[in-house]
Design a protein around this nucleic acid. Structure first.
Lengths: 148, 148
DNA sequence: CAATATGGTTGTATGTTGCAACCAGATTGT
DNA sequence: ACAATCTGGTTGCAACATACAACCATATTG
């Protein structure tokens, strides 16, 4: 999205992901797309981004295949921006960021908005990295992460 | 980290997380911290960031409580940067970004570095958002995400 | 058919980045 | 002991990105 002079051909999946979405505004747009926002104006209001910034970010997300432009669902001549399958796959990323923020950036007095499964009417349990045998995996120095 | 003029007091956990780590370099530093990097010079080499950028990012991460400076583990007079408990809690975020990049940014010919649990010698299964009853949760429009 | 909403584009001032040069203290080699 | 080098930065500057306001064309509403 933002031009990356230094890391064109990195082999690291994290770096490649960040090329597409590793930017404050893009991630905020994606968050709002998961909250049902579809229109340019809606994203502008809910993210607070300036129009030109929003334009470049939406264009970048479309270029990377995270979102796509579709005819407006209300039949008007306008267009909407919706997440592609690739974009929907970012769900765990957004949830992980949500839960981390919820855990670490709210004072005892504050009540963070609760992430809940509306269908089952229960809060969503904390996302966990599991090993192949289903046991919860905790990061322990050299357990993970190849050196590429 | 980067000064956010527009969103000082947002109630959204994702936005609060992004204030601390929603930046290309910071996330790359965190990735490398999970890969065992500890020294300024090591981060410089593995991320490719310029020294001044690295300085500001490391300082920011320390300010936000994601990393901390500790005396060097080899007994020298230098210092090292290590993840705090709060920083270690970013593990799911990094894994989610890793897996998303692995799935969507590698051509059929390319082989992405595999994320594997060294202790059990098996690849790590895909991170999934689970509902309270343990069933896999897929994003379906209005299932999740409160409007704050 | 005038007024307004939508979805942008184009300046311009300011802030952030990337790069190279420089520097002080710690460490190493002799 | 002392010069060379390594480590972990800081500073200056040019290039680039951002925020904000003004403007504009098309679509929609009253």
């Amino acid at each position: 999205m933002v031009k990356r002079i230094c890391h064109g051909a990195t082999n690291c999946p994290v770096a490649r992901s960040l090329d597409a979405i590793g930017d404050w505004w893009s991630l905020l747009i994606i968050r709002d797309a998961f909250r049902g926002r579809r229109r340019f104006g809606a994203f502008q209001k809910s993210t607070g981004a300036a129009k030109n910034i929003l334009t470049t970010r939406l264009r970048g997300l479309v270029d990377y295949g995270v979102m796509e432009m579709v005819p407006a669902s209300d039949g008007s001549a306008y267009q909407e921006y919706v997440l592609t399958e690739k974009g929907l796959d970012l769900f765990p990323v957004v949830i992980a960021l949500w839960q981390w923020g919820e855990k670490h950036f709210f004072e005892p007095g504050e009540t963070p908005p609760v992430l809940r499964d509306r269908r089952r009417k229960k809060p969503i349990p904390e996302l966990a990295v599991l090993a192949a045998d289903g046991r919860r995996l905790r990061h322990t120095g050299t357990t993970l992460m190849p050196q590429f």
